[in-house]
């Protein structure tokens, strides 16, 4: 239970960076932290004590307990999607820097007039 709650705290730290910080790179960092927190929470929910990783081996009996493989498969796609999102965000941030010469949101707003 404490572990679940600590992932919520990690989520809140990411949300703080996303909302309060004015630097675009800090906002991207906050988004990555949120992704990590959510992925970790879902894997924690699927964990089972005294169980093996969901990979069958030769000579393994039928009654071996495995951890939940379904969240692992879904989180695997989620991690790679997160990488694509970060690539797109970095591309947009670099374009904004070239146009306005700064990563600061408030300065960009002033420059646009």
């Amino acid at each position: 239970m404490t572990l679940y709650f600590m992932t919520f705290i990690l989520f809140c730290i990411g949300m703080y960076a996303l909302v309060v910080k004015k630097n675009l790179v800090k906002k991207i960092i906050g988004l990555v932290i949120i992704e990590n927190a959510v992925n970790l929470f879902l894997i924690l929910v699927g964990f089972r004590f005294d169980a093996e990783a969901p990979i069958l081996e030769e000579g393994m009996g039928k009654m071996v307990a495995f951890v939940d493989p379904l969240p692992q498969a879904m989180i695997l796609t989620s991690i790679v999607i997160g990488l694509g999102v970060v690539a797109l965000l970095v591309a947009i941030a670099i374009r904004i820097y070239e146009k306005y010469g700064t990563f600061d949101i408030s300065q960009i707003r002033e420059l646009r007039g």
């Binding site: 894997i43 990783a53 969901p54 951890v67 692992q72």
Partner: peptide
Amino acid sequence: LLRAPDLAIVQ
């Protein structure tokens, strides 16, 4: 530690 080696490699 959570027995997810696939995810560890990808992450």
